[in-house]
Design a protein around this nucleic acid. Structure first.
Lengths: 188, 188
DNA sequence: CCTACCGATCGGTAGG
DNA sequence: CCTACCGATCGGTAGG
């Protein structure tokens, strides 16, 4: 007797959707395409999912929750802001290399989330950003960081960390991490 | 007698399209929406443009050409790599602040360009990237830059420069430029 | 999980 | 620049 086989099928569909959304963008990806990728007729997809939007929601929220989980663990530790930032670099790379398609869709396609999921997603992001910024401002208070405006610096650094996940496969993870740490902490 | 009034109308349509593409993404933006923005019936748009794709092409190629023009001027000067990189920071901010919608569409929506325009666009980008990378490697040869891998460093820095053009309006240009220069040259 | 199908919306054209 | 309209494609449902 198989237990909840639908769970596995659904996961396969979500992963196929992530690959497609990444490649063509959410709006240019059709349910028919996703169905073909997993060997189903278009309408059969709906035995496993409620809607195309649900697929995007699962991808974006799962990834957002990974970031939240990670930053919560990092924030709680009794270490310097500099070490925390180093762990954040590592966290972003963990998530990006673990599942590149999810990471790219999370970065590039979240805006197509329907309400009320969009609000839920944005709240997670706002929470993440706040915790990230606190690490930066703590580091500045301690005299370890010397950026000028914490909002601008935060925006630049978060963008840097989410750098072209697109080209990720071309490089080894350790190389990327070394380079990011070098640039963030010492500059070019 | 009015001379070539269509040029102005077309420009207005392109700018409206850029605003819409930026806000909703290319695929989620309909010709009907663009027409409504400029006060025309949907079909009347086609008296001014050939297709929706043409609008995207104009936005992306015009912006790509601005970048090419800028880097060609910068590369020709007899100055250090560090000064060149500083001018590149300035170039990216010039283009971003001059027309944020064009800049964002250029960054986020270019992949929806149809062939053969996509290839033309990618060739411009490849040329730009090559010139940008040369400045970085020159700076390293001179011992002024200390990054590790020029491909990775280039990707990170270009991403940093194109940082959330999305939030640009929240900050003053000089502040952003100061912060970028600080982070790129000295680190956090 | 499939066959059959639907209403909505899309980019674009014909003809004036 | 408009009215009228078209074929294609979309997300999704009915019913088995």
């Amino acid at each position: 007797m198989r237990i909840k086989p639908k769970i596995d099928r659904k996961r396969i569909i979500i992963m196929a959707a992530a690959d497609l959304f990444r490649e063509k963008g959410y709006n240019a990806s059709s349910v028919r395409d996703i169905a073909a990728m997993v060997g189903l007729e278009p309408s059969s997809i709906y035995s496993h999912i409620k809607s195309k939007e649900e697929l995007l929601a699962e991808i974006c929220l799962e990834t957002a929750n990974k970031f939240m989980l990670g930053i919560n663990i990092i924030s709680k530790q009794d270490i310097s802001a500099k070490k925390m930032l180093k762990l954040l670099v590592s966290l972003h790379l963990d998530i990006a290399f673990e599942n590149p398609s999810f990471a790219i869709v999370y970065i590039d396609e979240w805006r197509y989330l329907p309400e009320p999921i969009l609000s839920e997603f944005l709240n997670l992001r706002k929470d993440y950003d706040k915790k990230f910024k606190k690490i930066l401002t703590d580091g500045k208070s301690d005299g370890k960081f010397s950026f000028l405006n914490s909002d601008i610096a935060f925006n630049i650094i978060i963008k840097t960390l989410n750098w072209s996940f697109t080209n990720l496969k071309k490089f080894r993870r350790e190389e990327v991490e070394e380079e990011l740490n070098h640039l963030i902490f010492n500059g070019i």
